[in-house]
């Protein structure tokens, strides 16, 4: 919308925030050990960024690193210590 003529009268939000790469905020990255996972989905339940995906009730959780901010709640709350937060190396 580079022309003011194309802008609506008042700001109306219709586009998804999903295109915003909040993963850039991350310092620590979650590393997941699938072996230890018992599919309790506590990590999914507590994620403030909706960045942990569970496809169905049989599958392993998956991390959406485009959005994960690396807060570490998943690692802290995992009852099986299946998630570890490590310092992310940036190229």
């Amino acid at each position: 919308m580079s022309k003011h003529q194309d802008i609506p009268l008042t700001p109306i939000n219709t586009e998804s925030s999903e295109k915003v790469r909040t993963g850039d905020w991350r310092t620590y990255i979650p590393v997941f050990d699938a072996e230890k996972c018992i599919k309790c989905y506590i990590c999914w339940k507590y994620c403030p960024d909706a960045a942990i995906k569970v496809k169905d009730e049989e599958s392993l959780p998956e991390w959406d690193l485009f959005h994960c901010k690396g807060c570490g709640i998943c690692a802290e709350e995992c009852p099986k210590d299946a998630i570890e937060m490590i310092l992310e190396e940036v190229e």
Binding site: E18, T22, D49, H67
Partner: peptide
């Protein structure tokens, strides 16, 4: 609630 929001790390209000 979609990801890509501006909540701080570990924000309780977002959860």
């Amino acid at each position: 609630m979609r990801p890509g929001h501006m909540g701080c790390l570990g924000c309780g209000g977002t959860l």
